[in-house]
Design a protein around this nucleic acid. Structure first.
Lengths: 187, 187
DNA sequence: ACTGCCATGTAACTAGTTACATGATTGG
DNA sequence: CCAATCATGTAACTAGTTACATGGCAGT
């Protein structure tokens, strides 16, 4: 009845969404959970999550209770209100899909490649291959986490899709690197 | 001798880099050129480019001259100073590679898929396939532009790499959609 | 002894956005 | 006549960052 639509940034929905996995979480818990998103969407800074939580509380989309603890600092546990759930589902199923966004620094630098020599570009590609390999390793760990959370129906698919992406990145880098190395070899 | 390192955001380097393709460009020109970056890195807003240009001028990395025009508003043409060129090349070849970043809204929503029904997720995938197909079409146009700029040695590779990425996205979406449709078909 | 985890929060900052304004010209 | 293009710029805003602070506990 009341409640004009708040029109929140995506980060808000991320927090609401993470809260939907269990009915009570601290800001700290949310932050940890958010780290898994970094491979296909990004992970907000800790301070941002607390700010988001304050905003959501102001909009009554989450509520909280304080828990005193011995030894550890007090914690505030948040949970979704029914309005929060409704707003989240509305976004999930009806909000227009924002455009995909990629920030691929290797392609950016390659775009300006006429200002550098091939050796430098080759070196960059080698570094990139190492970085991507590292990420692929981390993704395997995320896959395990996804398995643990029974709630997450699509976890497997998401990790598979992401892995496909990073594998593709590595392949393209390797292919281009081979070309560069051939070029350097015989000048 | 003077000049401590300015430590600029990437957007500054984008502007410097675009300026390296021809020796004089207006803010407007830069903006147009920057649009081609959106497929693999992002394209800053117009106001941001003018702000960037002011900053770079303050650092003496670009200089400008005013040109009066009849009928059209006056323009300011910018060009790289030798210091600007040096700073840019330094960044290009020696700056640490920032991590790749992906904001894939479909995967984000899928992650929270337990809060929606399969039909809604399927609909989202259909929309995504349409969007990606549109982008793939635009990329073909970019390919032509890349061909025109003789300076751009790696243009072909970049478009190929990007196309590979978007094609992969579409394939994954189609694959998952098929799964969903099979599920909906027999409940 | 030290590191890292738990747990929260603030302060200072910057990068970036949207929306608006101007105004003549060209093309359909 | 309308829309788009050229060309610049400002104002108001927001989302987001880094860095710091606190402090006890557990494990190596």
């Amino acid at each position: 009845m009341s409640s004009m639509k708040p029109d929140l940034p995506i980060t808000s929905y991320i927090v609401l969404g993470l809260l939907s996995f269990s009915d009570e979480m601290s800001g700290y818990d949310i932050r940890k959970a958010a780290e898994n998103l970094q491979y296909f969407y990004w992970s907000p800074a800790q301070s941002q999550i607390y700010a988001e939580l304050r905003r959501l509380a102001a909009h009554k989309l989450v509520s909280s209770r304080s828990v005193r603890q011995e030894g550890k600092p007090d914690k505030q546990l948040f949970h979704l209100t029914s309005e929060g759930t409704a707003v989240f589902q509305q976004w999930l199923t009806h909000a227009p899909l924002p455009p995909i966004m990629l920030k691929q620094p290797v392609l950016l630098k390659l775009f300006f490649g006429h200002m550098a020599d091939t050796a430098a570009m080759a070196q960059m590609l080698r570094q990139y291959i190492v970085d991507i390999t590292e990420i692929l390793g981390q993704l395997a760990v995320v896959a395990e986490y996804m398995g643990e959370v029974a709630e997450n129906e699509y976890g497997g698919m998401i990790v598979e899709w992401s892995s496909h992406f990073y594998t593709g990145e590595r392949e393209m880098a390797q292919k281009l690197l081979a070309q560069f190395e051939a070029q350097i070899g015989e000048p």
